[in-house]
Structures are given as C-alpha cells and as structure tokens.
Design a protein around this nucleic acid. Structure first.
Lengths: 181, 181
DNA sequence: GCATTTAGGTCAGCCATATTGACATATTTC
DNA sequence: GAAATATGTCAATATGGCTGACCTAAATGC
C-alpha cells in the first residue's frame, strides 16, 4: 500500500507541506481528486439503484425526502435545481412503486407534502449506509480533525450566496431527526 | 454572513468539535455537503461550455487530454470509465471543432495519441481557472493546513483498489507539466 | 365574491450522455 | 499467417435534463 500520508505532489510544495497559492497555476490535483472522489462516491449507490431500475435522480429525491419528511415539492425543486417536469418523472415512479407518499397539506390543501414509506426509508438508509461507510473509512485514515476539516472545506466550496441556505437545510434536517429519534 | 467557523451541527458533536463515529448513524452532513459542493463546483464550467454547445462530457475529455498530452484513447477510457462509443461522440466533436488533435503513435501506429490544440488549451485553462478560483477561495477560508487536509480527505474517498492508480495519474501529469514549463 | 396568484401536475418534444452488441480496419505480436 | 490489440463506427435503447404550453384546485387580495 502506498504511503497515503505522503503528499503525492510534495515535491511541488514548499516545506510546510501546505500549498502556497501560485497565481495563474490551477490547483490541478484538487480538481482531479474531486472528480475521482465524487465518481467513486456515487458508484456504489448507482449499482444498487440499477438493480431496481432506478438512477441517480431517484436517489437524490429519495435522499432528501427521507431527510426532510413532509417537505414541499417546491422546496425539493429548489434543492435539486431541476424543473418540475424532470422531478415529476422520477417522483411518479417512486410513488407508484411505494417508496414515497404524498399527503395533502393540513393548512394549505394545495400542497402535496412528501414522505418516504418504510420501504423508502429502508432503501434511503441502505444507500446512505454505503456512502457513510466510505466517508467513515476516509475519515478514519485522517487525523482527529479530519471530520471538521472535511466539513469546512466542502462548505467553503459551495456558492457563497447559497451557503447559508444549504447549511440551514442540513441543520433543520438534523434537528428534526434528533427529535424523532 | 453566518459564522462559518462554527460547526453547523456543533450541538450534535462532542466537545472536541470532532465527530466520534456513531455506529449506524449516517454522516448525513458530509453526504449532503458533497452533493452541494460538487453541484456548484461544476456549475460555472457548465455555463461556459453551454455557450459553445458543449457539455460536461467535453469538459472531462478536454481536461484530461490537456493534462496528459499524448495520452492514448484507452487510457482516457479507463480514467473516465465510459464506453468508447460514448467517448467517440464527444471526442469527434472536439476534434472537428479544433480543440483536440490525434496523432499516430510513433512506436505503435495503431494508437491515436491525443493532444489539445492551442485553442483547446486555452479553453481547458479557462475552465480550470474557474474551478481553481473556487478552490482557492475555499482554501483561503480554511487554516494553513486546509489544502493538505482537503487533499487527504478527497484521496481517502477514492476506491482503495484504485487510489494508487489515480495518484500515479495525477503525479505523472504534474511531472510532465513541470518539465514543459 | 370574483380576480389573481400560488402549488402542483401533465403532455409533447428535444437534447445530451450514457448503455449494449455487432462489426470493421489497421497494426502488432506470437 | 493467425491471433490479439487499438481504435472506430453503426444501430438501438435508456435516463434525465430542458422548454413551452396548458390544466386543476386552492388560497389570497381587494
């Protein structure tokens, strides 16, 4: 096994081990690592989904509905940044096959609030489990501050004008989950 | 602006600020941050490409050919993990429009080695510049060890049976680049 | 109470990008 | 000379985006 603690490109870097931004020089390694990491990150769920004749689009819908029970269709569209026609297709399949149900809003009866069924929750958790195993393994290879560093780096990559919204979505889902459990 | 240094879910975590792996509990935040971060990471290049009637597939081809001049078609297929039919379509468009050229291999004349033209290099660097600006901004928000931590985290996310290969590809491209410049 | 807005759904068609399978050509290797 | 290799191509199919148009039902505003 290669020495993963030795920077692959250490000979390019100053002694501190940290990158000093060279103007005009792209950060090729981070760009490529993001590509490879994301490719592998979604590949295991993709395989599971393929056996159910589902795709990555179904995963995203199932994931966010599971995390935010009772979410409005409009909220989901905003998170996924796709059109309602695109959502409609995959959502219909998830509903028809019993992974997701829609309930009329109590206050506003125009709303079709989204919930996973127990079948849907089982699948959502199975898929999250695959990704969690990967992330946990990765964090395990890092030092004690790995989780915090990863979280901060990923957060900082998000569009700054969107970041607060994203963090709110995540925090809200965490809070709701904690209350249910 | 929200306090980005305060963990969004700090109330969930033990005092050290670091995550202690709770068995059976998915790392929802990292999973979702990866989704949002990657979505934004590719969005600016996507916009530029759309004006040229290109898509993300063209970006990936152009990127890796630019980084690895003289690369074989088979290598590219292996990196992208797509079929040659899928590659063929986008590669043909890049060649037809003068972004990429193919040269017969000197040793093995069956090979069609891939190179970017200066037009291709210009576009590749423009796209990498957008992503570099985002990464540099993100790293700038982190501490002095941010770059190293990000690199290690992303590396650790990659399939372990593939990681050495990926690191070799990146290191090789870096070495070749250094020699050219 | 009626007009407008909002939440959501749907039909039709188009495009990009991926797939499988079959087959073709040139070249290298054994 | 046969087999393997590198690459290209044709045809069909699937997924998941998109735009544009149009619809219903319910809430909201005056």
């Amino acid at each position: 096994m290669a020495d993963l603690n030795a920077p692959a490109t250490s000979d390019l870097r100053p002694s501190g081990g940290d990158r000093i931004a060279r103007q005009d020089e792209p950060v090729w390694d981070i760009i490529e690592l993001l590509f490879f990491a994301y490719r592998d990150f979604v590949s295991e769920p993709d395989d599971v989904l393929a056996k159910l004749s589902f795709g990555r689009a179904h995963h995203r819908v199932l994931h966010f509905v599971n995390r935010n029970p009772g979410m409005k269709v409009a909220e989901l569209l905003d998170i996924l940044k796709i059109t309602k026609q695109s959502l409609g297709r995959v959502l219909k399949q998830l509903v028809d096959q019993g992974y997701v149900v829609q309930k009329e809003g109590a206050n506003d009866r125009r709303q079709r609030l989204l919930y996973v069924t127990s079948k849907g929750e089982t699948l959502a958790i199975k898929l999250a489990g695959l990704q969690t195993a990967r992330v946990a393994r990765a964090l395990g290879e890092l030092g004690p501050n790995g989780y915090e560093a990863a979280r901060r780096f990923l957060t900082a990559l998000i569009d700054s004008d969107n970041r607060d919204g994203v963090l709110r979505i995540i925090a809200r889902a965490d809070r709701a989950r904690r209350q249910r459990s």
